[in-house]
């Protein structure tokens, strides 16, 4: 089984896409969980501000999500563009 240059590149791109998305998903998952845990704590302490706290939580999570989206973009680029 001879592996030619272009074939090797394609194989590496597929494996790389899996690694990029897999490892890239760890951080945002934990980070967003932390944000939500603290939001629960804050609402427990001060339930009157639930609306404001939910908003803050969602904005914080959206920012933390960005690295997950970068991984997704890179994985899709590796799969379909490169």
């Amino acid at each position: 089984m001879a592996i030619e240059g272009a074939e090797l590149v394609k194989a590496a791109a597929f494996l790389g896409a899996g690694l990029a998305m897999g490892l890239g998903a760890i951080g945002p998952g934990i980070g967003e969980g932390m944000v939500a845990a603290k939001a629960c704590e804050a609402i427990g302490k001060n339930p009157k501000e639930a609306g404001l706290l939910t908003r803050t939580m969602l904005v914080g999570q959206a920012v933390s999500e960005s690295t997950g989206i970068y991984s997704l973009v890179i994985a899709l680029l590796l799969l379909f563009v490169v």
Partner: peptide, 23 residues
Amino acid sequence: GAGISMGFGGIGPGIGNGMTAEG
């Protein structure tokens, strides 16, 4: 790659969801 992606990708959200539930 499909196995690696889903395997590693499940670690973070699992821990994160647990942290949220803990709080």
